[in-house]
């Protein structure tokens, strides 16, 4: 890989020649704000938050799209750049409901974060604001275009990564908004409810229909592996008060930040009231709750009785493709070492 030497904020740095300015800055630990950037997507260069000053260029340049060149001199936080970012935030705010107090995205909203960082305390513009009906047709998420900042990440994730093309931009100019073709609503569209659009939305426009009220800062994230199919998507469980309240995709090697509807939205079984919470023993055809000791005792007694009466070969166990490796290991060990039979199988074939 060939490298080039550039100067960012007067500091020289050597970076690969296919880097964008944004990547180079990141490497140097310089934080350039972005709203429409996602490293998995083609650069869109629409939010203009990542603009920087490049020596010799007439206009400010978007660092997400401009590749470095040898000798380039870049200013990422000059007065001119900061003023431009402030103005852009000011403009976005002017067309955004000022409802952070009650917005569920509060705390992880990029617009909120950058307005805070760049000291934009109110909008200086008045005038027309969006006024769209909320599309709540999907059982899994809302599309509230009044909060949308048109970064287009949802549209591009849907078309470039998910390749479902359920949503796109409708109308033009100030009236540009994200919707399904002919405004038929998400639930009537070709949407497969993967929620990958929801996961990338930087503001509160696409939000999961949550059963719980929570603020992101009240939750802890637990990285884990999805328990549905065999793709092994990596994801973060959002946990509040001993409850899983949401799922966010992680950048695992097999899923690259994507999930499907089951992984993203299919977690409410965890807290479901039907969950078994005590051992049950069937007495006279009815299940009766028991203690673990009673249940264990009964199982051990039956095993010992049947084993002494008929030997080990009348035992069989179905282990589970749903359980962990460790549990499968122990299951077969229990049958082989504890009971003495190899009749262990699972539903690999189903």
């Amino acid at each position: 890989m060939d490298t080039v030497i550039i100067k960012i904020n007067d500091e020289r740095v050597e970076v690969p020649n296919d880097f964008t300015i944004l990547q180079a800055a990141k490497k140097m630990g310089i934080d350039i704000p972005t709203l429409c950037y996602d490293e998995r997507l083609e650069s869109h260069a629409a939010c203009r938050m990542c603009v920087v000053e490049v020596e010799g260029a007439r206009n400010l340049q978007t660092s997400c799209s401009l590749k470095v060149a040898d000798g380039m001199e870049i200013k990422t936080h000059s007065e001119r750049v900061i003023q431009a970012r402030k103005d852009i935030l000011d403009l976005l705010w002017a067309n955004h409901p000022n409802d952070c107090l009650t917005c569920e995205k509060s705390g992880e909203c990029k617009l909120q974060e950058y307005c805070y960082k760049y000291d934009v305390k109110e909008t200086t513009f008045e005038g027309k604001r969006k006024n769209y009906e909320i599309d709540d047709s999907s059982p899994f998420f809302y599309n509230n275009q009044n909060k949308c900042i048109n970064c287009g990440k949802c549209v591009r994730v849907c078309s470039e990564l998910q390749h479902t093309n359920a949503i796109g931009f409708s109308e033009r100019g100030f009236n540009t908004h994200v919707s399904t073709p002919f405004e038929i609503g998400i639930d009537n569209s070709v949407c497969v409810s993967c929620g990958n659009c929801v996961s990338v939305c930087p503001v509160g426009a696409l939000m999961p229909k949550s059963k719980e009220k929570f603020r992101l800062w009240e939750t802890k994230k637990v990285r884990t592996t999805c328990s549905y199919c065999g793709v092994g998507c990596q994801m973060d469980l959002l946990v509040k008060d001993n409850k899983v309240v949401g799922v966010q995709p992680a950048n695992g090697p097999s899923n690259n930040g994507l999930l499907c509807v089951k992984g993203k939205f299919g977690f409410n079984f965890i807290n479901h009231p039907d969950r078994l919470n005590k051992p049950l023993i069937k007495k006279d055809g009815q299940f009766v709750e028991s203690s673990w000791e009673e249940a264990y005792g009964l199982i051990v007694e039956k095993v010992n009785n049947i084993k002494s009466e008929k030997g080990s070969e009348v035992f069989a166990g179905f282990t589970s493709a749903r359980c962990t490796n460790e549990e499968n290991y122990l299951f077969q060990k229990l049958f082989r070492a504890g009971i003495g039979t190899n009749s262990v199988d699972h539903c690999a074939r189903l």
């Binding site: 884990t224 592996t225 097999s254 965890i270 078994l276 919470n277 490796n325 460790e326």
Partner: peptide, 26 residues
Amino acid sequence: DVVLPAASFAEKEGTFTNSERRIQRV
């Protein structure tokens, strides 16, 4: 005859091995 209540994937430590033979943490 006996039903034993188990923890779900979100309630325990462990590993799953995915289709591509990758052993990943739970």
